[in-house]
Design a protein around this nucleic acid. Structure first.
Length: 350
DNA sequence: AAAGCGTGGCC
DNA sequence: TGGCCAAGCTT
């Protein structure tokens, strides 16, 4: 693509964006903290899913100082249901580091890149949206758009990525506000140049799109191979004594890391199985399947009561039942709790 | 550098 | 239904 062609594309793109771009809450502000929160939430997560979380989170933590001062469980609690919980832990960690250093929020690509959880895409997006930097922000949408325009099957490969960035920079040079170019490319990918059923008839880039002239734009980008992962049988135990319940915090780093959970035994991975003598199990059980990206849990949940509990075995602890509602949990444990909390006391005791 | 990390919607 | 997908990052 020549510089002149890039300029023409950029102008057509911005004309389309001003007519058909999305209005989104995090585009109504230049507050870098709010935009940072939105970008973290939007990783691998749909816009419609994020919007209510975004408003709730900023209402609870309006500033980086408020977030830095919060407890981990408050932050995870606001995040419950969004998934990829390490994002929330890194956001929290980043906020505390910024407040500790007292130099405000970053304003450049390089400075954002130092922040935990901020990678190449986010650093460019944040510097562009909050500070006006002319940095190409290549997310999944933009990579797909440029993969098609330039007919590059693997736009993330180093050589292709350079071509993609170069073409976007050329568009920015010819077309005003760099942040608008980034927003426009993302919106184009989300609403026109979609993964399936692209609407080439209304695309402002169609005239120069090599994938379209090739006749089968959906062939780009090349599909990523992804495994489905194993199915694990998981036994989850809700063990109660009077008004209390046994829980533990899952270790950071792994699946649902940092969240609270009920003691569980995994088919072949140990998990956290604690020996509690004298449990009277109820006859009812709950069974369901929970599909993660890389593994599936076939869950069987049981609930029981213990008459004379010893101290909670490490790392578990007894928690008042109403407090369990406020502990951040993953979906499987939350679902088990929603079932178990409705059960009355066991009918038989030892 | 390939694998791990959640959840919900869509067809 | 099950497979695919959605504003990526870390190790």
């Amino acid at each position: 693509m020549t510089a002149d062609e890039a300029r023409t594309l950029g102008q057509g793109l911005l004309a389309w964006y001003r007519r058909s771009g999305r209005r989104l809450p995090w585009r109504e502000t230049r507050d870098p903290f709010a935009i940072w929160v939105s970008e973290v939430m939007l990783q691998q997560t749909r816009v419609e899913t994020v919007i209510p979380y975004y408003h709730r989170f900023l209402r609870r933590f309006p500033t980086v100082e408020a977030l830095a001062a919060a407890a981990t469980d408050e932050v995870l609690g606001q995040w419950e249901g969004l998934g990829y919980y390490a994002r929330a832990l890194r956001l929290h960690e980043g906020a505390r580091a910024m407040v500790r250093r007292g130099e405000g929020l970053p304003g450049s690509v390089a400075a954002w890149r130092e922040v935990p959880g901020v990678g190449p895409y986010m650093a460019a997006a944040l510097a562009s949206f909050a500070s006006g930097a002319a940095a190409p922000a290549v997310d999944g949408n933009v990579a797909r758009v440029m993969s098609r325009v330039l007919a590059l099957p693997r736009p993330r490969l180093a050589a292709s990525a350079r071509a993609v960035a170069g073409a976007i920079e050329a568009m920015m040079a010819g077309a005003g506000d760099p942040a608008e170019v980034n927003h426009a490319l993302m919106d184009l990918g989300a609403t026109v140049c979609r993964a399936r059923a692209p609407r080439c008839g209304v695309c402002p880039l169609a005239s120069l799109c090599r994938a379209r002239s090739g006749g089968d734009p959906e062939r780009y980008p090349a599909p990523e191979a992804r495994g489905r992962g194993p199915v694990l049988a998981v036994r989850i135990h809700v063990i109660r004594h009077l008004g209390r319940v046994l829980v533990y915090r899952r270790p950071p780093g792994g699946i649902l890391g940092g969240l609270w959970a009920f003691p569980a035994r995994f088919e072949n991975e140990g998990g956290l199985a604690v020996e509690i003598p004298g449990v009277t199990w109820r006859a009812e059980r709950q069974a369901f399947r929970h599909v993660f990206t890389h593994q599936t849990w076939q869950v069987t949940a049981r609930a029981g009561d213990v008459a004379r509990p010893g101290p909670a075995p490490d790392p578990t602890r007894w928690v008042d039942a109403p407090a369990v509602d406020r502990l951040p949990m993953g979906r499987p444990d939350r679902r088990v709790w929603a079932w178990a909390r409705e059960l009355g006391p066991a009918t038989v005791t030892l």
